[in-house]
Design a protein around this nucleic acid. Structure first.
Lengths: 329, 329
DNA sequence: GTGGGGATTGTTTACGTTAACAATGCTGGC
DNA sequence: GCCAGCATTGTTAACGTAAACAATCCCCAC
């Protein structure tokens, strides 16, 4: 900056004004400074800026398990939205989400001088008492329970599970089995509960829940039980991956899909349309969740006030070839 | 920091020494300072640190298309490795990789005061002439061609394609068709070339290449042609997603896998083992690529010298149920 | 012609940290 | 007992930027 000032024959302050597009700079002077900047290859040093202004134009993101499909997609949307809003993204991945790790991640983010934090970790893994946030560091929580003292953004899990279950019932199935996600997941819990409530509301029997861990392999393992049971004619899988494993188990057992068994997934991951058969599933908009989370955080940053209404992003049923009315014997 | 110093009755310098675990601090004093830190909730301000030290302990990552499987996995590994090494990750996603965007991403990273950059964009999308790096900002390129003036880390695409093709030939197939990735991708190009070279080395005919865009949907679209051609008995798909679409096309055409047609994929994404049938595929270790990239960058940071040998991470053939010897008519 | 007021530019200072140097006190060998 | 030398602690200055304030200068209304 000093070089630029010298070259342009102005003070550092004027360079600063030009760099920040502030008024009160003569057009000729501005051009001179801009030319000098180009010549010197001047880039403002954001460390100094951050130090001076007390903010970094940077958003910290704490993610647990970037490997899973949904988390990745959401993170992707968050990063795009943040970038579009002129914020950089500082990522802290947390491998095994225990208290210490999460708290440590927070500590690191504080040190990184981020302006706000988006936590993308299922909330029950957090113990509020354990996490000490500095006052004034805005936080938005994604994919979690909503009793937190922070704004929460999430897919409307209940609605998604309901339309999936109702779709199968409307096709004429007597009841719907459920291949659930891990009980440690709030999303899984809410999908399971909504499925159950939907069945009860329609006066149907509620079959026992089979539980996987989101992975296709677990869907296969659990799916073998479902495939072997001729009473099963309709299954709602808590995500597409497990549905994929279930499809394989049904194929192996020689059961026709959707002739013998209808399957609905959840996510609408890109390849779901290419499963065999193409999967009927609940599309959730990770992109919207990410965008909304960033929007909520930026609102907090700008206005400095929480608004605690949780944001629920609706889902949409995508009907493909894996569901059909049951074969009447 | 001033508060801590006052509370502990020492100077700021001593607090700094404690914070950085420097010697020359009395044990009693250290404890007093630590207690004061806890009481005040002191966290060092990394902006000031960065300003003072000229480095941020932060690595910038430029990623094109975080949505694709491989990129995401690699990025994930990069973030974990960097975190383990005590570096934070600053992500700049680039949506549509044109020159301007990439250059802009660089600019932003420079402003973010990162210590080094990992570029995870296929290199042919970059035009070296267009990119002006400040001297001394170390760069490592992932997944790209290797004629760059930066260290390059990538999966050994040629070896992977070779073992896939040889596996099919060894099973007794006359030749191997190829469902290739987009020609704009270096990885796709190298896989295609290696497949071709392997066929030629064995004196086999080289069928025309069919090209997809990595997506399962494109694999299906292209796969329909392959499925309709009875001469096709073995296909090497350039990634698992396209293989999934191909499997669907073969199922639709009523062709038995692996009885009529054998299929090999590339990636070994998690669900490949649950495809129908479970997919024989080439496993590439994105985790290794990410770790190596970080290691190379940190070496550069520490020693301040390039070492230009490209790093090639080997692949491994995972044999499952989608490949078998051809049916002899 | 004169003074007020706005536009433009410069000067000073502070942000929080740490390197370099200075100062103090203590230990031990002669 | 005295001084060298080391351990401990404090003081000063600087990193690059921008806010606050000060200083010019020019234009225009009277």
């Amino acid at each position: 900056m000093a070089d630029v000032a010298r070259l342009a024959g102005v003070s550092g302050q004027t360079v600063s004004r030009v760099a920040n597009d502030r008024p009160h700079v003569d057009a000729a002077t501005r051009d001179r400074v801009l030319a000098a900047m180009r010549e010197v290859g001047y880039r403002p040093n954001s460390a100094a800026r951050a130090l001076r202004n007390g903010q970094f134009r940077s958003i910290g993101v704490i993610v647990f398990e970037l490997s899973s499909f949904g988390n990745t997609r959401t993170f992707n949307a968050v990063s795009e939205a943040a970038t579009a809003a002129g914020y950089a993204i500082t990522l802290i991945p947390v491998l095994n989400a225990d208290q210490g790790k999460v708290t440590g991640a927070f500590t690191r983010l504080q040190e990184q001088a981020v302006d706000g934090v988006i936590i993308q970790i299922e909330a029950h893994q957090l113990d509020e008492a354990e996490i000490h946030l500095p006052d004034g560091l805005p936080v938005v929580v994604v994919d979690s329970n909503s009793y937190y003292d922070y704004p929460v953004v999430d897919t409307d899990q209940a609605q998604g599970a309901r339309i999936a279950t109702e779709h199968l019932l409307d096709l004429g199935h007597e009841t719907v089995w459920h291949l659930g996600g891990p009980p440690t997941s709030f999303a899984a819990t809410r999908r399971r509960r909504s499925w159950e409530e939907t069945l009860i509301a329609r006066g149907r029997s509620v079959p026992p829940v089979l539980v996987g861990d989101w992975s296709a392999a677990s869907g296969y393992a659990v799916g073998r039980q479902l495939a072997a049971d001729p009473a099963v004619t309709a299954v709602f899988a808590a995500n597409d991956e497990m549905a994929l494993g279930l499809l394989r188990a049904l194929h192996e057992e020689g059961r026709d899909i959707p002739g013998d068994v209808s399957v609905v997934g959840f996510d609408d991951q890109e390849s779901a349309s290419q499963f065999w058969p193409p999967l009927t599933t609940v599309r959730q908009s990770f992109a919207d969740v990410g965008r909304q989370a960033v929007a909520a955080l930026i609102t907090e940053l700008d206005t400095n006030e929480h608004h605690h209404q949780p944001v629920s992003v609706p889902t949409e049923l995508i009907i493909r070839a894996s569901t059909a009315p049951p074969n009447r014997p």
